[in-house]
């Protein structure tokens, strides 16, 4: 009998305790963060989408070689002597045209390994993490600021320069033989 009454009391009492707790929570502000409108502050060393400041890129290909999943493609063309490519922000002279600098974010594993070898610190992580697309090809990001025509032009320029050099070399190789003694003579 005592047990029975105790059970009854316990049943009613514990329900009331529970109801008190839920009633308190009725007036506690929600912990939900309304995501698209309100965003949490990202951690200091977050790793998200990469960005390449192409003005600083010297086309050294070190990031592409560091990449464990081969998602970075860098194509370069040597500049011809007359062209001035300017300098990077840390004073390195640029010698290569970067005709193609693509990063495939569908492949990228966000390991940040490409960031460390860069001599000019032109490839780095941004705070953009919402870039999902419907097409996988839209995840292929092109960072080179040369248009395809320009890139083609640069290639042609270099090829022409190379050809001229070859021609000069060939000419030099063909011509100097008779001249060589005369040179010696003059000296």
């Amino acid at each position: 009998m005592k047990e029975y009454l105790k059970n009854t009391w316990l049943g009613i009492y514990t329900v009331l305790v529970g109801m008190k707790i839920t009633f308190k929570h009725l007036f506690t502000p929600p912990v939900t963060i309304q995501y698209p409108e309100v965003k949490l502050k990202l951690p200091e060393r977050e790793r998200n989408r990469l960005y390449v400041n192409i003005d600083d890129c010297i086309g050294c290909d070190q990031c592409a070689r560091a990449c464990p999943v081969n998602c970075i493609t860098v194509d370069t063309v040597k500049s011809v002597p007359g062209e001035d490519l300017g300098v990077t922000s840390n004073g390195k002279k640029k010698a290569l045209w970067v005709t193609n600098f693509t990063i495939d974010f569908a492949k990228c594993c966000y390991c940040q390994l490409c960031v460390f070898p860069c001599p000019t610190e032109c490839i780095y992580m941004t705070d953009v993490f919402e870039f999902s697309t419907y097409e996988r090809k839209d995840l292929l990001y092109q960072f080179s600021n040369l248009t395809p025509e320009e890139a083609e032009q640069k290639k042609l320029n270099y090829a022409k320069f190379q050809a001229e050099k070859e021609a000069q070399k060939a000419a030099a190789a063909a011509a100097p033989k008779p001249e060589a003694p005369s040179q010696n003579n003059t000296n």
């Binding site: 009725l26 506690t28 502000p29 929600p30 939900t32 309304q34």
Partner: peptide
């Protein structure tokens, strides 16, 4: 709404 408020949701 009541269930959400009691569970600290919106």
């Amino acid at each position: 709404k009541v269930s959400a408020w009691m569970q600290d949701r919106v």
